[in-house]
Design a binder for these strands. Structure first.
Lengths: 152, 152
DNA sequence: TTTGAAATTAGGTGCTA
DNA sequence: TAGCACCTAATTTCAAA
């Protein structure tokens, strides 16, 4: 997918705030309304723009307790791996999950209310899954940076 | 902040897709246009709704190489810690950074084009910072789950 | 530039503390 | 009676062609 400099600037603006008017983006880019409108349509159709979402303040909705959990599986048979990944998708507390290189197989980011809620998640849901070997939890002491924007 | 069941449903809808019309949310919630409009306004003013953003498809913009980097500082004097955190905020490749418990001090999530770009980031920017002790990088083999939505 | 649709505002009702 | 959440309807603004 080829993006010119205007596309990149536009995408940076959209990543920062998706609720401004097209006219506002057009002003910033020194383009016409229509030109910007068509670029956005094109970027949506090509799939570069994946979705428009609302971000919440975790502190105000009682989900400020963030934990990173490294998970090791017992066996790495394709079938078991697939099953684990399918099950993780269903766990509402898990906001991110990556299959990673290194000592552990997976890294999960979990958002819950507090330590008690995390314990319930860990004992009642995560380690209750088949094929989980060991886990190691790191607690977020502070969120230094959180961004959904990718620099272009 | 007190959220009733309607607020929670509304926030789930907004987290999933922020570009639908108010009428559409109103239909789903079986409320009037105005009632939904005023709830959204209230949630914005209270700060529960932090912002509206556009999410991009990392694969289509050459930033599909995701790395988790654990960082240990040499010294933990408040001044040095603050400086490190200030500098991390300026690193455009770093999309998330958490001060965490455990063997390492920080966990960074980094999005770049490829291994070569990561090497340049690591050598040219991250380990060039003052007070960095050791780092350990884990590469994302696969993104199993990525969500900005928090379950309410 | 125009037009239809959407967001926003205005004005009023009923419930609850 | 004050405050809140909701309604319908009028108005303004914007996306879309």
């Amino acid at each position: 997918m080829q993006l010119d400099e205007i596309d990149k600037k536009l995408l940076m603006l959209l990543q920062t705030d998706s609720k401004r008017t097209i006219k506002a983006y057009a002003n910033d880019l020194e383009l016409s309304n229509t030109a910007v409108y068509e670029r956005i349509r094109r970027l949506e159709n090509k799939g570069v723009i994946a979705k428009y979402v609302t971000l919440l303040n975790k502190g105000l909705i009682d989900k400020a307790f963030v934990v990173f959990c490294h998970v090791k599986l017992v066996q790495h048979i394709k079938e078991y791996v697939r099953q684990f990944e399918r099950e993780v998708l269903q766990l509402e507390e898990v906001v991110e999950c990556y299959h990673i290189s290194g000592d552990y197989d997976y890294l999960l980011k979990i958002c819950v209310k507090d330590m008690e809620a995390y314990r319930e998640f860990l004992v009642g849901k995560l380690t209750a899954l088949k094929n989980i070997g060991s886990t190691q939890s790191s607690f977020a002491i502070q969120e230094v940076k959180y961004s959904t924007a990718i620099q272009l």
